[in-house]
Design a protein around this nucleic acid. Structure first.
Length: 571
RNA sequence: UGGGCCGUCGCCAAGUGGUAAGGCACCGGAUUUUGAUUCCGGCAUUCCUAGGUUCGAUCCCUAGCGGCCCAGCCA
């Protein structure tokens, strides 16, 4: 990807520092290999974007590679549909996965034989307690656990049982393979954690070949080692799993299955954003209970939603650079992400004219059949992008908010007897207006000063502060525009509001912004109707809009508002 | 509560025993035919608190305080 603008030097953060140190000491001979390992049980969200840019970005920076790996060890939750969707999102962000695409399920055979090796080394045993018994004997945060009565089974018996587990002789839950570590460990993850469970379920890739499946803690570190990952980056909640990660790998290395150095797990803080939720559970709930229109609803913090909203890969890249990487819990304001999208879109979205709330303006001294050719630059900072002709005629559409009968102090748009410039056209003077019985303005009248046409000599001699956009009523195209706002009305959905009674428990759904979606009928420059779906434009003085990826067509143009322009006046 | 991690400007975030980078936001001012963009300037005597060590501490020590994570046969 190229990021011509705002391309600061890569921010320094502790992981990059560590990689540099490893390179300096030649720990890996200069090799840098990372991985992005989602479970294919849902769609990717904004948080994943942070991880994707970190993993793929860091690898690229050091001429290394980043593996795309699907952590598919739980057949009851995973589906091919998610694999496809995730791949699509990663590609959309700009990364190629074709040369390094992996599935944990492809390692089932090795994972299994290493597990036998663990048993043979006396490091694992088959437990025949049920789930409740295991929970009861695990202890608590303050109390140590107690050994399983099956913990001292012989290696032979463990091996026999494990093989029969694999052969399908037992029902789900009848037995489980556990690591033999320490039931008294202050780190609960080390109290003989599960390695393999019985699951008679169809796997989306391995089919019915297996009825035992490895647990994350075991499968992940082994997969990393198998792929020669050097730096295994994950979020903070896995910090207390790191001793386990190392425990498995050390024992497998001792048994001769891996050579040292062993891959290293490094944790960083996950993304937290205001005015949204990023937990998979809550996202699923939003979709399933129809609080949004699916995973690709433009208000969703999913990458599919972002794309439909008009957010850009380059904007996400800018965002991840801006927020940095660290281990401290952070809460990033949604406005930071929105600003990044503005910055990116400002750079490369062509400008167009749209009147979102049309009000008729009649130029009384322009002949009915007259067409005045005006020219608007496609990008004010990029003359090389050229200009386009916009016809000016007697009857125009202007923005309703650009005329006020009794304007407040500081307002410098159109008012009775006031002057304003029709952008790229002439200066006009308001000569009157009509109102209906409700007092609503229905039409504004004005006269053109023909000596002031934009671009002509002398047009600069007269300055007016107001500058409004317009569209020829005879040429404009009707369209639908969807105005999206933040999905939640409060910065921390589900958190207590000040003044809440102590016993009140809030649900994040209670904080949904009821006005996060509005649809309106607007007038567009005709070229906007012909634009391809997913094309982004700046509608001058309004914001950035994208032609809807699903619903937009030349016959029925549909644009989504990505983000508004910054607006110092409305404050 | 046992264990682990974290606490530097409104939000992020570097930094190191030698006297607080940077970004975003914000506030001024300039340019501007988008109240946009761009540009210029301003913006932590202070690093959770209190002691201590030191010529010197955000950094080292001690004791507190605050936050996050862990008790799935989920990842």
């Amino acid at each position: 990807m190229s990021h011509a603008h705002n391309a600061p030097a890569p921010a320094v953060h502790f992981i990059r520092t560590l990689v540099e140190a490893d390179n300096a000491s030649a720990k890996w001979g200069g090799r840098v290999e990372t991985r992005f390992p989602p479970e294919p049980n849902g769609y990717l969200h904004f948080g994943h974007a942070k991880s994707i840019f970190l993993n793929f970005g860091l690898a690229a920076e050091f001429d290394g590679v980043c593996h795309m790996r699907f952590d598919d060890t739980n057949p009851t939750k995973e589906e091919q549909e998610y694999v496809d969707a995730i791949l699509e999102d990663v590609h959309w962000l700009g990364f190629d996965t074709s040369a390094h695409l992996y599935f944990t399920s492809d390692y089932f055979e090795q994972l299994y034989s290493f597990a036998e090796s663990l048993i043979q080394g006396g490091h694992a045993f088959v437990d025949s307690q049920n789930a409740e018994e295991m929970r009861a004997t695990r202890g608590t945060l303050t109390q140590v656990g107690t050994d399983s009565p099956y913990r001292s089974r012989s290696i032979e018996e463990n091996l026999d049982l494990f093989r029969r587990m694999k052969a399908g002789e037992f029902a789900d839950g009848a037995h489980i393979l556990r690591a033999k570590i320490d039931m008294a460990s202050p780190n609960i993850n080390l109290r003989d954690p599960a390695i393999y469970r019985i699951r008679h379920a169809h796997h989306h890739r391995s089919g019915d070949a297996w009825c035992i499946y490895p647990m994350y803690d075991y499968a992940h570190c082994v997969s990393d080692a198998l792929e020669n990952i050097t730096h295994s980056l994950c979020t903070l909640e896995f910090e207390s799993h790191r001793p386990l990660y190392d425990w498995f790998l050390e024992r497998l290395a001792d048994a001769g299955h891996f050579t040292r150095p062993l891959p290293q797990q490094i944790e960083f803080s996950r993304l937290n954003l205001t005015y949204t939720v990023l937990s998979k559970r809550k996202l699923i709930q939003l979709v399933q209970e129809n609080h949004v229109d699916g995973w690709d609803d433009p208000r969703m913090p999913s990458l599919k939603g972002a794309r439909r909203r008009g957010f850009t890969p380059q904007g996400f890249k800018l965002f991840t650079d801006r927020i940095g990487i660290s281990k401290s819990d952070s809460l990033i304001d949604m406005s930071v992400l929105e600003d990044c999208m503005r910055d990116d879109l400002n750079e490369r979205a062509e400008r167009r004219i749209a009147v979102l709330d049309p009000l008729k303006l009649v130029l009384t001294n322009v002949a009915a059949e007259h067409i005045e050719e005006c020219y608007a630059p496609n990008h004010p900072q990029k003359p090389e992008l050229g200009k386009r002709m916009v016809p000016l005629t007697r009857e125009l559409w202007i923005e309703r908010e650009d005329f006020m009968e009794t304007p407040p102090k500081g307002y410098f748009r159109l008012r009775p007897d006031g002057e304003v410039r029709l952008r790229y056209g002439f200066i006009i003077k308001c000569t009157g207006f009509d109102k209906d019985e409700n007092g609503k303005v229905t039409c504004v009248y004005a006269e053109v000063d023909f000596d002031t046409k934009s671009g002509t000599p002398g047009s600069e001699s007269r300055k007016v502060k107001g500058n409004i956009h317009w569209l020829s009523a005879a040429h404009a195209v009707a369209a639908e525009v969807r105005l999206y706002d933040r999905l939640f009305a409060v910065p921390a959905p589900g958190a207590r509001h000040e003044g809440d009674p102590a016993e009140l428990e809030r649900n994040f759904l209670d904080d949904i912004n009821p006005n996060s979606k509005a649809s309106t009928h607007v007038m567009l420059e005709s070229s906007l109707a012909k634009a391809a779906p997913e094309s982004s434009y700046q509608f001058e003085r309004h914001g950035y809009f994208v032609a809807d990826i699903k619903d937009h067509s030349a016959e029925h143009p549909v644009y989504n508002r990505t983000v508004t322009l910054r607006d110092a006046w409305s404050k």
